[in-house]
Amino acid sequence: MDSRAASTVDSCSHSSGHSVAIVGLGWLGEPLALTLQQLGYQVAGTTTTADKASRLAALGIQTLLWNLDAPLPTQWPTALAADTLIVCVPPGKVDNYAQRLGEVARLAADGGVQRLLFTSATSIYSGLGAQREADAKPDSERGERMQATENAMHASGVLQVMCLRLSGLVGGSREPGRFLAGRSFEGGEEPINLVAQEDLLRFMPALLARNDWPSVLNVSAPHHPSRREFYSQAAKLRGLAPPQFSGGGEGKTIDGSAISRYLSLDYLVTDWFDWLAERNRS
């Protein structure tokens, strides 16, 4: 462990009295909950699956069954009482996404939540070239929905809100070799914008240990090879049919460097081909 990573763990363990509620114990929320628990946080969360609720409860994560498409409670659930709320709910998991998550955030504010971290997405950016935090100009329905949700988070009444704009998610159960294998696409020369689960599980606890949150940060690994290069290699290493690409495409690159400067933490993944090879060996 390098000195910066060690200092991050130390600062997090000093926050042992802090409590965190995670709405959405899924691909990111579940390992994040377990990571925070190991760092001394009191952690609770939500899921839509009874088996998962039982399994996580047995591990000491108080887990509430909560379907966000059902009518919301009139008060913030006691099981989710916490200093900080993390909302890790992808758009495809709930109808009327911006409206419903805004309602959840306002309920949390009324329930005493002091800080809110929302996992947004880089679909909020349009255009070509490097995209930084100030460049959000959505040009798609997905991007407009995400911007509306960010606005709802900031208008919720929670005292401190940060939107973490995540690039494409890989690692854990998300195997990029299977994403495009054997299919045909345009834009083979467009750069990829991805972030690995292992980097999120370092950055997010470090963010919780800080009290001077910016309103928004990007999370995107600093290596942006072409889609053709990356997904062809990812499929090859898994013994799958490579995707076929036509056309070029300049595309955009998401600049995720601000979070590194803010936390004094480098990305673990700085070369996606090295990451693919290591993942294939494990």
Rank of each mutant, 00 (worst) to 15 (best):
L159W: 10
G188S: 08
Q131A: 01
P214D: 09
L169D: 05
G248I: 04
I86S: 00
D69F: 03
L200K: 07
D266C: 13
S120W: 00
S226K: 03
S173R: 09
R132T: 13
W76V: 07
L65P: 05
V170N: 00
P71N: 12
R145V: 15
S232V: 15
T122C: 08
I254E: 00
S215L: 04
G45D: 01
W66D: 03
Y231V: 05
L128M: 15
S19T: 14
I259M: 07
T253G: 11
L194T: 07
I254M: 01
M153F: 06
A130L: 13
H14V: 14
R132A: 08
R4C: 10
S184L: 13
E250K: 15
S264C: 04
R106C: 02
P90L: 03
L276G: 09
G256Y: 00
N218V: 06
V20C: 05
D274M: 14
S11R: 13
A134I: 14
V89T: 10
Y97H: 05
G249T: 06
N96R: 15
V113N: 06
A148C: 14
A221E: 02
D135R: 14
L201W: 00
P243M: 11
R202P: 04
L25V: 12
R261Y: 07
S215K: 12
T74E: 11
Y262V: 11
A155R: 03
A209C: 12
A6F: 10
F179T: 12
D51I: 14
I259A: 09
F245Y: 11
Y125C: 08
E30H: 09
E198N: 11
L36Y: 01
R279W: 03
